[in-house]
Design a protein around this nucleic acid. Structure first.
Length: 301
DNA sequence: GCGTCCAGGTCTACC
DNA sequence: GGTAGACCTGGACGC
């Protein structure tokens, strides 16, 4: 069965700049079809229904082609719409950030480009699992781990389409299984513990998106998850809409050295001091500055 | 083809 | 609070 959704987008929203805001668009179940200029992903509704969503931009909005095994009720379409709004950050209010950007000639390109919305998953669980899979390895290994998670443990719609696995699906495996079949290595016990805590409702990751905690307290809570250190927690906070941390890893450090110190290494505290005056948006300014070169291309990678 | 070395974040033990 | 070593994998390199 097929269906269609039309989603309105906020002012200054740029579809491709959101899709290519960071590497998530190249990790399944996201898929960028460069030939047909679309972003697709399989979403799973609360009732277990799987829907393949193929998104294309249009003036003032997004058109979504829906493919699933049964006809969709209005409520299911609404749930799909809400999930895609979450992924594309359509309800995030960036007007204050854009005002700040417009005040500084270095950053005036940001509102003009419609940049600043960082693509995320429908669930915090998926974002956290993926973030752990980016730690201490090459991007190609991250791709291997996430691909294995979806194809081996995710629900399948057929045609090679798989959803991201539920906490229960991961919790139902063993550390040895994750090591052998998912290739998550020493991260396996961390993923197993995380999935078990979430599956048994002893850890509510989804509440982080509306947490009453201060950013500093939330950062500590994110870091209390095994496998989540400074880098991973800082970047998860950005996906939660809090931009106080830079989330430094080897790639952004090297980019900073290239842009600001002629390749000379400096302490992390030196980098942090440079962005401190940018206040609560500093993590977003920093990330956009480091990836400014991506915005010269429709498909930067 | 095989063995060795290294890069990549986080955790734990130790000072 | 700071630091060293271990964790695991893929890729680069030398033989």
């Amino acid at each position: 069965m097929t269906g269609r959704l039309e989603i309105k987008t906020p002012p200054l929203f740029n579809f491709w700049r959101t899709v290519y805001s960071h590497g998530w668009c190249s990790l399944p179940p996201y898929f960028v079809d460069k030939e047909h200029e679309s972003l697709s992903r399989l979403v799973e509704l609360g009732d277990g229904t799987l829907i393949q969503c193929v998104m294309r931009p249009k003036p003032g909005g997004i058109t979504v082609a829906l493919h699933c095994q049964t006809s969709l009720a209005a409520g299911q379409k609404n749930e799909t719409r809400n999930l895609l709004c979450v992924c594309l950050r359509l309800k995030d209010n960036l007007s204050e950030f854009y005002r700040e950007a417009a005040r500084d000639s270095k950053y005036r390109w940001i509102p003009k480009a419609g940049a600043g919305r960082l693509l995320r998953a429908p669930t915090v669980f998926e974002d956290v699992v993926k973030m752990i899979c980016t730690t201490n390895c090459s991007w190609s290994l991250t791709e291997v781990m996430v691909r294995n998670l979806t194809t081996v443990l995710g629900k399948s719609l057929g045609d090679g389409l798989s959803a991201f696995p539920s906490p229960q699906a991961i919790a139902g495996t063993t550390e040895a299984f994750l090591r052998k079949h998912i290739r998550t290595g020493y991260r396996s016990p961390y993923l197993l513990e995380l999935a078990t805590l979430v599956a048994e409702e002893r850890l509510d990751l989804e509440s982080w998106r509306s947490s009453p905690l201060s950013t500093e307290e939330l950062f500590k809570e994110v870091k209390s998850v095994k496998g989540m250190g400074d880098y991973a927690a800082g970047n998860i906070l950005k996906l939660l809409g809090q931009y106080d941390y830079l989330g430094l890893d080897s790639w952004v450090r090297a980019k900073f050295y290239e842009l600001h110190t002629r390749g000379r290494k400096v302490k992390d505290s030196t980098i942090e001091k440079r962005y401190a005056p940018l206040g609560k948006w500093r993590g977003l300014f920093f990330w956009l500055e480091m990836t400014r070169h991506w915005y010269d291309h429709k498909f930067p990678f």
